[in-house]
Design a protein around this nucleic acid. Structure first.
Lengths: 153, 153
DNA sequence: TGGGTTTTGATGGGATAGCATGGTTAATAA
DNA sequence: TTATTAACCATGCTATCCCATCAAAACCCA
């Protein structure tokens, strides 16, 4: 497969391990190695996850800024400094580091939602709330789908 | 690994020794030998660190400035003049020289944060303040991130 | 189409190796 | 020697690996 689609609700065990859905793993594998990058979603209590492609986009963004500018160093702290490189183990699982778990409020279960070029990890309750909200807004935004937007892949 | 990502909080012992996070060491190793260059971060109470690649970038940056110009001489003094070449010992540790420690205000603990092409060393308290600042900035500049919006779900 | 079989994926627990860290000894310089 | 720095062990913790179990979906063959 090419994009992250669909969503899954998996257990987080006592060691902080979660299974990465098999279909997501196959998307990652297609991008190269079985590594996964995760960082707090800017502006949401969730985690943004993706493979080499996602981290490449972030890199490109930051490298476009002048070296030693405050802008670049500050953004890097948030985007790279809070980013974790998670190795997918032989059983298809990752370990969620504590600070990322805290950011998303994740305890014993996690929802993983495909968003195309990346996927997000949510605490199930918060995800429900967010989804209820987005159902409403999708109605409002439907007209956007009818025309092409610049920058869309 | 390819870039410095994630952050770590390590102890500084009585001799000034700190462990370089294993993942950072592997990035350095990929760039050649296990040497690490460190100098005061221009404009911040922290230390900029990296391997051969970083020092190469600094050289290129300086060589792009007009020879004998004030800005070139001043930057050279600041970046090269205060730069230390630190050897990573067999246990993966470095010794932080006193003047660098003083510049960063580091006492018994240090935060090491990956910024992609380099990483920084901070005194934990000061880093917290810095991070708060970066969260704010990311919020302001989220439009830079293109399609990555809080309403993405 | 239905029932049984096989394969794949998710989850739990225990063994193991890697890492951060403290301390001790050896080497070097003043 | 005496002070300082570098190499060498030693330990406890945590993440990583491996194996076992279980559920579910895909498959196959009447």
């Amino acid at each position: 497969m090419e994009r992250f689609v669909s969503s899954f609700r998996n257990k987080v065990d006592g060691k902080g391990r979660v299974s990465v859905p098999a279909v997501f793993r196959s998307v990652l594998a297609r991008q190269g190695h079985s590594v996964l990058y995760a960082y707090p979603s800017p502006g949401a209590p969730a985690l943004d996850c993706g493979g080499e492609r996602l981290i490449g986009e972030v890199s490109a963004l930051l490298e476009g800024l002048p070296p030693y500018s405050d802008e670049r160093d500050l953004l890097s702290v948030e985007l790279f400094g809070r980013c974790e490189e998670l190795k997918v183990d032989g059983d298809g699982r990752i370990v969620l580091p504590d600070d990322l778990r805290t950011h998303a409020g994740i305890e014993s279960e996690a929802v993983m939602v495909g968003l195309g070029h990346k996927f997000q990890i949510w605490e199930p309750g918060r995800f429900e709330a967010r989804r209820a909200e987005s159902v409403k807004r999708v109605g409002e935004l439907r007209s956007l789908l009818g025309r092409e937007r610049p920058g869309d892949a």
